[in-house]
Amino acid sequence: MSVNLDMNVLIQNVFNALSLGGLYALIAVGYTMVYGILRLINFAHGDIFMMGTYFAFYAITLLFLPWWLGFLCAICLTGLLGYSIEKIAYRPLRNAPRISSLITAIGMSFFLESFAVVVFGGIPKSFNVYPKIFSQVIIMGKTRIPILTFITIIVTALLFLFLWWLLYKTKTGLAMRAISVDIPTTSLMGANVNKVISVTFIVGSAFAAVAGILWAMKYPQVQPYMGFTPGLKAFIAAVIGGIGSIQGAIVGGFLLGFLEIMIVGFLPSLAGYRDAFAYVTLVVILMFRPTGIFKIYSEQKV
């Protein structure tokens, strides 16, 4: 096992970890918001992320939109997709046993994957629809960092600012936080629960679309199963941080990003097991602190 220690490599790895962690955090926020409100693991979230990248891809290649408009369209469409999924598949089961909604979510994920295979084709497509300036590399001394890494970090930061504003400065955000504590009481206080849940799904899905587009630029291809692994890892990030807690999802996402990049960076011989780190971390966390770092709620009904 060769250990690779070099200052330039370290800086490069820190930036890589920040951008990967940011992407995980963006997806994890969608999981955690839905779980916080409905106590539902939205298994389809990783596939919503995948659909977002396909929407962007087709908006630009098929409709010949300029790239920024294509991305914007994709983000809106993905928000709409999240809204419809909640309305069609999850709302009828809101009062059913929680396992039923979990199974439905798994079915939804399976449906979106098959849908992508049928409609978009199972062969990976090259995602080269963005301006070439994004893939240029900034060279600082001996460190080489792609511009895309900076863009990812900035976009992630801006979106988290927006999320903070939404949650703590608007009435909808207040209602979201209230619903995550107690749905019936919040509804008695005059909040429109269905509307708030829809907003949650739209925001979460739009975040997933942004993460998906950035992801597809980073690893430039799209394919129907691309959402599974990042989705599962982001979910793990949410659990590590304490599912239901937004700060937790963000911290968990960055933690996972750092862990993955640093282990592979320092111990390249473990690269094949890269995907397993997240799962092992999850198992360890669940064993010792099942509620994650930021414990948000505990429920014991007898």
Binding site: R39, I41, R98, I99, L102, L232, F235, I236, V239, G272, Y273, D275, A276, Y279, V280, L282, V283, L286, M287, P290
Partner: peptide
Amino acid sequence: SLRLTGDYFAIATLAFAEIIRI
């Protein structure tokens, strides 16, 4: 894993299955 309940158990077993596959 069986010390966990509900969703957490589901996710832990899914994670273990993925570890086995990897």
